[in-house]
Simulated scan of single mutants.
Amino acid sequence: MSDNQAILEEEFEVLESIFPDELEKLGESSVRIRIEPEEPSASHPLSLYLNVDYPAEYPDVIPELALEPIDEESGELRDGEEERILRELRTIAHPMQAEESLGMAMTFTVASAAREILAVVVGERWKKERDEEDRKAAEYEEKEAARTRGTPLTPATFNDWRKEFMAALKAKREREEEDRVKALPPKEKEEWKRRRDRLSGRQLFEQSKALATSDEALYEEGAAEVDFSQYSREQREADRRRAEEEEENRRRGLVADDSDNE
Protein backbone atom coordinates (compact mmCIF):
# COMPACT_ATOMS: atom_id res chain seq x y z
CA MET A 1 0.00 0.00 0.00
CA SER A 2 1.37 3.40 -0.96
CA ASP A 3 1.85 6.18 1.53
CA ASN A 4 -0.97 8.18 -0.10
CA GLN A 5 -3.37 5.25 0.16
CA ALA A 6 -2.42 4.70 3.80
CA ILE A 7 -3.15 8.36 4.55
CA LEU A 8 -6.53 8.05 2.82
CA GLU A 9 -7.45 4.92 4.79
CA GLU A 10 -6.61 6.68 8.02
CA GLU A 11 -8.75 9.61 6.96
CA PHE A 12 -11.71 7.34 6.26
CA GLU A 13 -11.48 5.94 9.77
CA VAL A 14 -11.48 9.42 11.27
CA LEU A 15 -14.35 10.61 9.08
CA GLU A 16 -16.46 7.60 10.04
CA SER A 17 -16.04 8.52 13.69
CA ILE A 18 -16.92 12.17 13.05
CA PHE A 19 -19.85 11.50 10.68
CA PRO A 20 -21.22 8.12 11.80
CA ASP A 21 -24.66 8.71 10.23
CA GLU A 22 -23.81 11.22 7.52
CA LEU A 23 -20.88 9.46 5.83
CA GLU A 24 -21.27 6.83 3.11
CA LYS A 25 -18.26 5.20 1.46
CA LEU A 26 -18.87 4.88 -2.29
CA GLY A 27 -15.58 3.15 -3.18
CA GLU A 28 -11.97 2.82 -2.24
CA SER A 29 -11.30 6.43 -3.08
CA SER A 30 -14.66 8.22 -2.82
CA VAL A 31 -17.23 9.09 -0.14
CA ARG A 32 -20.28 11.22 0.20
CA ILE A 33 -21.36 13.16 3.26
CA ARG A 34 -24.83 14.40 3.98
CA ILE A 35 -24.62 18.08 4.89
CA GLU A 36 -27.20 20.61 6.06
CA PRO A 37 -27.10 24.11 7.57
CA GLU A 38 -25.95 24.32 11.17
CA GLU A 39 -29.43 25.59 12.04
CA PRO A 40 -31.90 23.94 9.62
CA SER A 41 -34.97 25.93 8.56
CA ALA A 42 -38.34 24.20 8.42
CA SER A 43 -39.64 26.74 5.89
CA HIS A 44 -36.50 26.56 3.72
CA PRO A 45 -35.11 23.02 3.96
CA LEU A 46 -31.79 22.43 2.22
CA SER A 47 -29.81 19.21 2.73
CA LEU A 48 -27.37 17.83 0.13
CA TYR A 49 -24.78 15.17 -0.46
CA LEU A 50 -21.21 16.41 -0.70
CA ASN A 51 -19.43 13.90 -2.94
CA VAL A 52 -15.66 13.70 -2.47
CA ASP A 53 -13.51 11.80 -5.00
CA TYR A 54 -9.85 11.44 -4.02
CA PRO A 55 -7.24 11.31 -6.85
CA ALA A 56 -4.26 8.93 -6.58
CA GLU A 57 -2.04 11.94 -5.79
CA TYR A 58 -4.16 12.91 -2.79
CA PRO A 59 -3.32 14.53 -0.39
CA ASP A 60 -0.80 16.34 -2.60
CA VAL A 61 -3.79 17.67 -4.63
CA ILE A 62 -7.26 18.63 -3.55
CA PRO A 63 -10.08 16.09 -4.06
CA GLU A 64 -12.81 16.44 -6.66
CA LEU A 65 -15.96 17.94 -5.12
CA ALA A 66 -19.56 17.67 -6.28
CA LEU A 67 -23.01 18.33 -4.85
CA GLU A 68 -25.94 15.94 -5.23
CA PRO A 69 -29.60 16.46 -4.23
CA ILE A 70 -31.05 13.97 -1.76
CA ASP A 71 -34.80 14.13 -2.38
CA GLU A 72 -37.54 16.68 -2.99
CA GLU A 73 -38.33 17.15 0.70
CA SER A 74 -34.69 17.95 1.45
CA GLY A 75 -34.70 20.88 -0.96
CA GLU A 76 -32.79 21.65 -4.11
CA LEU A 77 -30.26 24.21 -5.22
CA ARG A 78 -31.43 27.09 -7.39
CA ASP A 79 -29.80 28.70 -10.40
CA GLY A 80 -26.20 29.64 -9.76
CA GLU A 81 -26.08 28.32 -6.18
CA GLU A 82 -24.21 25.06 -6.94
CA GLU A 83 -21.42 26.84 -8.84
CA ARG A 84 -21.08 29.39 -6.07
CA ILE A 85 -20.87 26.79 -3.27
CA LEU A 86 -18.29 24.64 -5.09
CA ARG A 87 -16.20 27.70 -5.94
CA GLU A 88 -16.08 28.72 -2.29
CA LEU A 89 -15.23 25.17 -1.16
CA ARG A 90 -12.35 24.92 -3.64
CA THR A 91 -11.11 28.31 -2.47
CA ILE A 92 -11.01 26.93 1.06
CA ALA A 93 -9.34 23.65 0.03
CA HIS A 94 -6.52 25.07 -2.11
CA PRO A 95 -4.51 26.79 0.67
CA MET A 96 -4.63 23.57 2.72
CA GLN A 97 -2.27 21.83 0.29
CA ALA A 98 0.60 23.68 1.93
CA GLU A 99 -0.36 22.57 5.44
CA GLU A 100 0.65 19.48 7.32
CA SER A 101 -1.75 16.59 8.01
CA LEU A 102 -3.67 17.18 4.81
CA GLY A 103 -5.99 14.13 4.82
CA MET A 104 -8.46 14.41 7.67
CA ALA A 105 -8.10 18.16 8.00
CA MET A 106 -9.00 18.82 4.39
CA THR A 107 -12.19 16.74 4.17
CA PHE A 108 -13.48 17.70 7.60
CA THR A 109 -12.78 21.40 7.02
CA VAL A 110 -14.43 21.34 3.60
CA ALA A 111 -17.54 19.57 4.97
CA SER A 112 -17.78 22.03 7.86
CA ALA A 113 -17.42 24.95 5.46
CA ALA A 114 -20.17 23.48 3.29
CA ARG A 115 -22.56 23.53 6.24
CA GLU A 116 -21.78 27.20 6.87
CA ILE A 117 -22.24 28.11 3.21
CA LEU A 118 -25.62 26.33 3.08
CA ALA A 119 -26.72 28.40 6.08
CA VAL A 120 -25.76 31.58 4.20
CA VAL A 121 -27.66 30.41 1.08
CA VAL A 122 -30.81 29.73 3.14
CA GLY A 123 -30.52 33.16 4.79
CA GLU A 124 -30.19 34.87 1.42
CA ARG A 125 -33.25 33.03 0.12
CA TRP A 126 -35.27 34.12 3.11
CA LYS A 127 -34.13 37.74 2.74
CA LYS A 128 -34.92 37.74 -0.98
CA GLU A 129 -38.44 36.43 -0.35
CA ARG A 130 -38.99 38.97 2.43
CA ASP A 131 -37.81 41.83 0.20
CA GLU A 132 -40.17 40.64 -2.55
CA GLU A 133 -43.09 40.53 -0.11
CA ASP A 134 -42.21 44.04 1.12
CA ARG A 135 -42.06 45.27 -2.49
CA LYS A 136 -45.50 43.80 -3.28
CA ALA A 137 -46.96 45.25 -0.08
CA ALA A 138 -45.59 48.70 -0.89
CA GLU A 139 -46.91 48.45 -4.45
CA TYR A 140 -50.37 47.45 -3.19
CA GLU A 141 -50.41 50.29 -0.65
CA GLU A 142 -49.45 52.78 -3.37
CA LYS A 143 -52.26 51.55 -5.63
CA GLU A 144 -54.76 51.79 -2.78
CA ALA A 145 -53.57 55.30 -1.93
CA ALA A 146 -53.90 56.35 -5.57
CA ARG A 147 -57.39 54.84 -5.75
CA THR A 148 -58.61 56.62 -2.63
CA ARG A 149 -57.08 59.92 -3.73
CA GLY A 150 -59.24 59.82 -6.86
CA THR A 151 -58.62 61.69 -10.08
CA PRO A 152 -57.42 65.30 -9.64
CA LEU A 153 -60.10 67.74 -10.85
CA THR A 154 -59.03 69.88 -13.78
CA PRO A 155 -61.07 71.70 -16.46
CA ALA A 156 -60.46 68.80 -18.85
CA THR A 157 -61.52 66.08 -16.39
CA PHE A 158 -64.55 68.14 -15.32
CA ASN A 159 -65.70 68.55 -18.92
CA ASP A 160 -65.28 64.83 -19.56
CA TRP A 161 -67.28 64.01 -16.45
CA ARG A 162 -70.00 66.54 -17.40
CA LYS A 163 -70.40 65.05 -20.89
CA GLU A 164 -70.75 61.56 -19.48
CA PHE A 165 -73.18 62.77 -16.83
CA MET A 166 -75.40 64.60 -19.32
CA ALA A 167 -75.43 61.61 -21.68
CA ALA A 168 -76.36 59.27 -18.84
CA LEU A 169 -79.06 61.66 -17.63
CA LYS A 170 -80.57 61.94 -21.10
CA ALA A 171 -80.64 58.17 -21.51
CA LYS A 172 -82.24 57.80 -18.09
CA ARG A 173 -85.00 60.31 -18.97
CA GLU A 174 -85.72 58.56 -22.24
CA ARG A 175 -86.06 55.20 -20.51
CA GLU A 176 -88.33 56.68 -17.86
CA GLU A 177 -90.49 58.34 -20.52
CA GLU A 178 -90.77 55.05 -22.42
CA ASP A 179 -91.77 53.23 -19.24
CA ARG A 180 -94.32 55.91 -18.37
CA VAL A 181 -95.94 55.75 -21.81
CA LYS A 182 -96.08 51.94 -21.71
CA ALA A 183 -97.95 52.14 -18.39
CA LEU A 184 -100.61 54.55 -19.70
CA PRO A 185 -104.12 53.25 -20.43
CA PRO A 186 -104.81 52.75 -24.14
CA LYS A 187 -106.88 55.94 -24.39
CA GLU A 188 -104.24 58.12 -22.78
CA LYS A 189 -101.53 56.44 -24.80
CA GLU A 190 -103.37 57.31 -28.03
CA GLU A 191 -103.84 60.87 -26.86
CA TRP A 192 -100.13 61.10 -26.09
CA LYS A 193 -99.31 59.86 -29.58
CA ARG A 194 -101.66 62.40 -31.18
CA ARG A 195 -100.09 65.25 -29.26
CA ARG A 196 -96.65 64.02 -30.22
CA ASP A 197 -97.61 63.74 -33.91
CA ARG A 198 -99.16 67.25 -33.94
CA LEU A 199 -95.89 68.85 -32.92
CA SER A 200 -94.24 70.85 -35.66
CA GLY A 201 -90.68 70.24 -36.72
CA ARG A 202 -89.55 73.24 -34.75
CA GLN A 203 -91.43 72.07 -31.66
CA LEU A 204 -89.90 68.63 -31.92
CA PHE A 205 -86.47 70.17 -32.26
CA GLU A 206 -87.01 72.45 -29.28
CA GLN A 207 -88.45 69.60 -27.22
CA SER A 208 -85.48 67.37 -28.04
CA LYS A 209 -83.09 70.18 -27.28
CA ALA A 210 -84.85 70.86 -23.99
CA LEU A 211 -84.55 67.21 -22.95
CA ALA A 212 -80.86 67.19 -23.79
CA THR A 213 -79.97 70.57 -22.27
CA SER A 214 -82.50 71.24 -19.52
CA ASP A 215 -79.86 70.81 -16.87
CA GLU A 216 -77.03 72.39 -18.80
CA ALA A 217 -77.97 75.79 -17.45
CA LEU A 218 -77.11 74.50 -13.99
CA TYR A 219 -73.53 74.12 -15.20
CA GLU A 220 -73.26 76.79 -17.92
CA GLU A 221 -74.52 79.61 -15.73
CA GLY A 222 -71.60 80.90 -13.75
CA ALA A 223 -69.28 78.24 -15.20
CA ALA A 224 -66.46 80.74 -15.39
CA GLU A 225 -66.56 81.07 -11.59
CA VAL A 226 -66.19 77.32 -10.91
CA ASP A 227 -63.27 76.68 -8.57
CA PHE A 228 -62.10 73.25 -9.69
CA SER A 229 -59.82 72.86 -6.70
CA GLN A 230 -62.85 73.05 -4.38
CA TYR A 231 -65.22 70.96 -6.51
CA SER A 232 -64.92 67.57 -4.76
CA ARG A 233 -66.34 64.21 -5.82
CA GLU A 234 -68.96 64.48 -3.05
CA GLN A 235 -70.14 67.86 -4.41
CA ARG A 236 -70.43 66.43 -7.93
CA GLU A 237 -72.50 63.53 -6.64
CA ALA A 238 -74.75 65.92 -4.68
CA ASP A 239 -75.28 68.10 -7.78
CA ARG A 240 -76.06 65.04 -9.86
CA ARG A 241 -78.69 63.80 -7.40
CA ARG A 242 -80.22 67.28 -7.08
CA ALA A 243 -80.42 67.62 -10.87
CA GLU A 244 -82.15 64.27 -11.21
CA GLU A 245 -84.63 65.13 -8.46
CA GLU A 246 -85.45 68.50 -10.05
CA GLU A 247 -85.94 66.86 -13.44
CA GLU A 248 -88.17 64.18 -11.91
CA ASN A 249 -90.29 66.83 -10.15
CA ARG A 250 -90.55 68.84 -13.38
CA ARG A 251 -91.58 65.79 -15.37
CA ARG A 252 -94.23 64.80 -12.84
CA GLY A 253 -95.60 68.33 -12.91
CA LEU A 254 -95.98 68.19 -16.72
CA VAL A 255 -97.80 64.85 -16.52
CA ALA A 256 -100.18 66.23 -13.94
CA ASP A 257 -100.96 69.24 -16.16
CA ASP A 258 -101.79 66.97 -19.11
CA SER A 259 -104.23 64.96 -16.99
CA ASP A 260 -106.00 68.10 -15.75
CA ASN A 261 -106.42 69.40 -19.28
CA GLU A 262 -108.09 66.20 -20.35
Score class of each variant (00 low, 15 high):
88 E>N: 14
126 W>H: 13
133 E>H: 10
195 R>S: 10
40 P>I: 03
111 A>C: 10
71 D>C: 05
50 L>E: 03
217 A>K: 01
12 F>W: 14
189 K>P: 00
104 M>V: 14
5 Q>L: 07
148 T>C: 03
37 P>I: 02
146 A>Q: 13
223 A>V: 05
63 P>L: 06
242 R>K: 10
74 S>R: 12
177 E>W: 07
52 V>D: 00
94 H>Y: 14
237 E>I: 11
42 A>Q: 12
137 A>L: 07
79 D>H: 11
218 L>Y: 11
159 N>A: 15
88 E>M: 12
231 Y>N: 06
213 T>N: 13
238 A>M: 09
77 L>C: 00
144 E>V: 15
188 E>N: 11
139 E>Y: 02
147 R>F: 13
210 A>N: 09
201 G>M: 12
91 T>W: 06
146 A>P: 10
158 F>H: 09
97 Q>K: 14
166 M>I: 04
55 P>C: 06
249 N>L: 08
194 R>S: 14
156 A>D: 14
231 Y>D: 06
116 E>A: 14
47 S>Y: 01
73 E>P: 00
168 A>V: 00
225 E>F: 09
4 N>G: 04
175 R>M: 01
25 K>G: 02
176 E>Y: 10
171 A>P: 01
235 Q>A: 06
201 G>Y: 14
216 E>W: 09
25 K>V: 12
